[in-house]
Simulated assay, not measured.
Amino acid sequence: MKNQTTVPDIPVSPFAGEAPDMFFGLPMAMARAMALRGERIGHNQAQVRMGFQPDQANSRGEVHGGSIATLLDCTLAAAARAHDPAAYGVATIDLTLHYVAAGSGDLIATARCERRGRSISFARGEVRGEDGTLVALATGSFKLIARQPAPAGA
Results as ranks from 00 to 15, higher is better:
G25C: 05
V100F: 07
T110C: 11
A33I: 12
G51A: 13
Y99L: 08
N58V: 06
T70I: 14
C74H: 15
M28W: 10
T92L: 06
M34G: 10
G51D: 11
E114W: 12
E39N: 10
D94K: 14
G125I: 01
V90F: 09
G89P: 01
A33K: 09
L76V: 07
S119T: 15
H83M: 10
A86N: 14
H64P: 05
A152M: 14
G117T: 08
F24S: 00
H43K: 12
A33T: 13
Q47Y: 05
L107Q: 07
T92P: 00
T96F: 13
A79T: 05
G42F: 05
H64S: 04
A57H: 03
G89M: 08
F142V: 07
A57W: 00
G105K: 06
A77C: 12
A29V: 11
A79H: 04
L36R: 02
T133A: 06
E114N: 13
A109I: 01
G117K: 06
L95G: 03
A69Y: 11
G105L: 06
N44V: 05
A109C: 08
G103Y: 02
G66N: 13
A150Y: 04
C113T: 06
Q47P: 00
G132H: 06
G89F: 05
N58T: 07
A57Y: 03
Q148K: 14
G89D: 13
L134V: 03
P54Y: 05
A123V: 07
R40G: 03
R40V: 03
S141K: 08
G129E: 05
A46F: 00
A150F: 04
G129P: 01
S119D: 09
A146L: 09
M22R: 11
I68L: 11
R49N: 07
R37G: 06
G38W: 00
Q53D: 10
I41M: 05
G25L: 02
A57F: 04
R124C: 02
D73L: 07
G105S: 11
D94S: 15
A154P: 05
Q47I: 06
V100N: 06
Q53E: 10
S59T: 15
A77Q: 00
L137R: 10
K143A: 10
A123T: 10
G129Q: 08
A78W: 03
G103I: 03
A87S: 13
G61Y: 05
S141T: 13
A86G: 14
G153R: 13
Q148A: 13
A136V: 09
Y99C: 01
L107V: 14
G38A: 02
M28D: 08
A29R: 13
A152Q: 15
M28H: 08
A79Q: 09
E114D: 15
K143H: 14
G65K: 08
G153I: 05
A154Y: 14
P151C: 03
